[in-house]
Design a binder for these strands. Sequence first.
DNA 1: GCGACAG
DNA 2: ATCTTGTCGC
Length: 232
Amino acid sequence: MEPLHDWNPKPEEAIRIQDELRRQLRLRWDGREVHTIGGVDVGLNDDRARCAIVLLRYPDLVPFEAAVAEVELTFPYIPGLLSFREGPAVLAAWEKLPRKPDLLFFDGQGIAHPRGMGIAAQMGLWLQVPTIGVAKSRLYGIHTTPGPRRGDRTKLLDEREPGRVIGAVLRTRDHVRPVYVSPGHLMDVAHAVKFTLAACAGYRLPEPTRWAHKVAGGAELPPESPRQERLL
DNA sequence: GCGACAG
DNA sequence: ATCTTGTCGC
């Protein structure tokens, strides 16, 4: 892939990089067919980051492939610069994947970010694949509380430009805390919400992300999820 | 200066 | 993210 920038800049430079990358984002869904989706999760251990990417069949959500990679941590956790801490591990796991998914879910924000460049957006640019950010809490944006049922949602608005919708606060289960959904690259808000609901099966977080979290923690894919199954 | 602050 | 068991409520 095309190196877009250095991964160990000073925070001030990282911010400049994000401001520059923003113009490359394509916040539009092109209508492509989706047969496989992937989930990314990064676990942190002392001075190393372990990333897992799990691929699932869509729309039945059966996991069939996974890749794990571990990398040395070189960047601190700074709100707004999460991608610089976890990005290298994601790239390492991505290169180990035998095949790439049609769509990727991230644990974190897409464009619902101070500079419109959350980890789902930034990695979408690196990987050149449609991405969606599903965060467990808010980083940026203003909103009201959505209804209590699965599917209920409110708009996530840009703090500095309240007329601009940057995502959705979405209830993925009845009476459970909503998640913050925002498009990354090659995605729009409506489809990000649609795919997120389609990927949530009984739990607050999307299945791809849940599997990635388990695998990053050492779990194996179930036997009934053959790693070499033909998909088409 | 005082909060807010993905994972 | 991580420290940490059982427990209350939807």
